[in-house]
Deep mutational scan, measured.
Amino acid sequence: LRQRHVACLARSERGLGFSIAGGKGSTPYRAGDAGIFVSRIAEGGAAHRAGTLQVGDRVLSINGVDVTEARHDHAVSLLTAASPTIALLLEREAGGP
């Protein structure tokens, strides 16, 4: 079961505080899956403080732009754009009992 949710992050002077992996033109985060995933969350960064991202979340869109088939460098450029806030649509595998 997959759950979707939106995370809104305000960029700090240190950026957004998370890294992505995967996407076309880069090493897959999961074998056989060209999706883009949250690969790291920086301690004390914007994403960590927001508490809405988890490592392993699939990134579906960035500020309304679909990145499900995107190249890695395109997703990075969307994240590093000048916008002071970033809205992410994420998909998470629902774990637990």
Rank of each mutant, 00 (worst) to 15 (best):
residue 69 E to L: 07
residue 55 V to I: 11
residue 33 D to L: 11
residue 53 L to P: 07
residue 36 I to Y: 02
residue 58 R to Y: 00
residue 1 L to P: 05
residue 75 A to C: 08
residue 29 Y to K: 05
residue 62 I to L: 01
residue 37 F to S: 02
residue 25 G to L: 04
residue 46 A to T: 11
residue 35 G to W: 03
residue 59 V to L: 14
residue 93 E to C: 08
residue 1 L to N: 11
residue 88 L to H: 01
residue 34 A to Q: 13
residue 6 V to M: 14
residue 55 V to N: 03
residue 35 G to N: 05
residue 67 V to D: 01
residue 48 H to S: 11
residue 36 I to L: 10
residue 13 E to N: 12
residue 42 A to E: 13
residue 75 A to Q: 00
residue 34 A to H: 14
residue 48 H to I: 10
residue 92 R to Y: 00
residue 56 G to S: 04
residue 10 A to K: 14
residue 48 H to D: 13
residue 33 D to C: 12
residue 9 L to D: 03
residue 44 G to Y: 07
residue 17 G to E: 06
residue 27 T to N: 11
residue 58 R to M: 03
residue 8 C to D: 08
residue 82 A to Y: 11
residue 47 A to T: 06
residue 67 V to P: 00
residue 30 R to K: 15
residue 12 S to L: 08
residue 91 E to P: 00
residue 49 R to K: 15
residue 85 T to P: 08
residue 90 L to V: 14
residue 80 T to E: 14
residue 37 F to M: 04
residue 77 S to H: 15
residue 88 L to N: 01
residue 32 G to L: 05
residue 47 A to R: 04
residue 81 A to V: 11
residue 41 I to C: 05
residue 13 E to Q: 11
residue 47 A to M: 05
residue 16 L to N: 05
residue 67 V to S: 00
residue 54 Q to K: 14
residue 49 R to Q: 14
residue 38 V to H: 03
residue 49 R to Y: 11
residue 75 A to Y: 04
residue 83 S to R: 12
residue 2 R to D: 05
residue 57 D to Y: 01
residue 6 V to C: 11
residue 76 V to M: 11
residue 47 A to I: 06
residue 76 V to Q: 12
residue 60 L to T: 04
residue 65 V to T: 14
residue 44 G to W: 07
residue 45 G to C: 09
residue 18 F to R: 00
residue 12 S to C: 15
residue 26 S to Y: 06
residue 65 V to G: 04
residue 81 A to R: 12
residue 59 V to N: 00
residue 44 G to L: 05
residue 9 L to W: 08
residue 12 S to P: 08
residue 84 P to Y: 06
residue 38 V to G: 03
residue 32 G to P: 05
residue 44 G to F: 07
residue 78 L to F: 05
residue 75 A to H: 03
residue 52 T to N: 14
residue 91 E to N: 02
residue 95 G to F: 13
residue 28 P to K: 09
residue 61 S to R: 14
residue 72 H to N: 08
residue 79 L to C: 06
residue 51 G to M: 07
residue 30 R to C: 10
residue 30 R to H: 10
residue 40 R to E: 15
residue 17 G to N: 03
residue 63 N to H: 03
residue 40 R to V: 10
residue 48 H to L: 15
residue 92 R to T: 04
residue 80 T to I: 08
residue 97 P to E: 14
